[in-house]
């Protein structure tokens, strides 16, 4: 049974000629990180908002764990779905702790349990509780605000999380580190996440599966690698940056492309890379002067070597696979 299922869902707004969301059918498995990707105005937000019933579908049905969401009390439903939006979502007149406690308070948790939960979540998103509990949102940087937003969405311990361009308003470097944290968090928590973005690289980094939308319709729903290698049509191909080889490198892990460590290898201050990193990252290190080979580490232990040649071989194998398909 899918965790979230859209069945022929359509949403019409009276001021729009076409449907904002047009006969969408989609099944999301439990624990999956699914990214909704598409140009602005294609219906991503509308699709998302129908899950916590901020919008009601004009037709079609949405199921959570097999239950038609219209059968649930609307506020109860919303309290079991985490919700993160861009920028302004935090309440400026409440402290960080009060913001995070929103859903626990709605659920009438005992004070002590809520306090513990707040501290636990602040620690989880890397904000030392003692320092940040009593701050107000205006006293945080953009990146920190978004982390509090994520903590607040997790507070009621929901199975489902909806995120609408949560990192859209922060600078590129902060965004990357927020994405990294999101990946780490999801490894720990295994929530079922619907994440909206119009940033292709963000989608590729985060997604187990990507939903590509256009004019309210779902054009393709597949893993990042498959979407890059087998775009459903010209639109998807264009959106994903055509045959952008560097982008494809971002999806191959170092351990797949590396060569075994030669028996007589002498560890001598070579630049290193973790085996779980991607080849795009490896390439950026290899292009620096003096780095002819990278020492691949698995938990600090050297396990292999990676040269530009290895990288080229891996990229070629990737594109022949794509051509053959």
């Amino acid at each position: 049974m899918s965790a979230i299922r859209f069945e022929n869902v359509t949403k019409e707004f009276s001021n729009m000629a076409r449907s904002a969301v047009d006969h969408c059918t989609l099944a999301v498995d439990k624990g999956q990180f699914v990214v909704l990707l598409g140009p602005s105005g294609c219906g991503k937000t509308t699709l998302l908002k129908m899950v916590n019933r901020l919008y009601e579908p004009s037709s079609g049905t949405i199921y959570l764990d097999g239950v038609d969401i219209r059968q649930l009390n609307v506020n109860k439903l919303r309290r079991q779905i985490g919700y993160v939006i861009q920028q302004t979502g935090l309440f400026p007149h409440m402290t960080v702790a009060q913001n995070i406690a929103t859903v626990p308070n709605l659920l009438r948790w005992p004070k002590q349990q809520t306090g513990q939960r707040v501290d636990e979540l602040l620690a989880l998103v890397d904000l030392p509780p003692a320092e940040y509990r009593t701050r107000y949102p205006a006293q945080l940087s953009g990146g920190q605000q978004q982390r509090v937003g994520v903590a607040r969405a997790l507070a009621g311990n929901p199975e489902f999380i909806l995120m609408d361009e949560p990192f859209g308003a922060v600078d590129a470097i902060t965004r990357t580190s927020l994405q990294d944290e999101m990946i780490t968090l999801q490894k720990k928590l295994r929530k079922t996440i619907l994440f909206v973005t119009h940033d292709v690289d963000e989608a590729l980094r985060l997604a187990d599966r990507i939903v590509i939308m256009r004019n309210g319709k779902i054009v393709q729903y597949d893993t990042p690698l498959n979407i890059l290698n087998h775009p459903a049509d010209a639109f998807v191909k264009e959106l994903m940056g055509g045959g952008d080889i560097v982008r494809q490198l971002g999806l191959i892990r170092v351990e797949v492309a590396m060569q075994k460590l030669p028996a007589d290898f002498h560890v001598d201050g070579q630049p290193t890379i973790n085996c779980e990193q991607d080849l795009r990252h490896a390439l950026s290190i290899l292009l620096q002067p003096g780095a002819t080979a990278l020492l691949v580490l698995d938990q600090q232990t050297p396990v292999g070597l990676l040269t530009l040649d290895d990288l080229r071989t891996a990229a070629r194998a990737q594109s022949t696979a794509a051509l053959a398909a």
Binding site: L54, N75, T102
Partner: peptide
């Protein structure tokens, strides 16, 4: 919207 989405009446 955020307040509503979190289940505030």
């Amino acid at each position: 919207d955020a307040a509503k989405g979190m289940g505030m009446t």
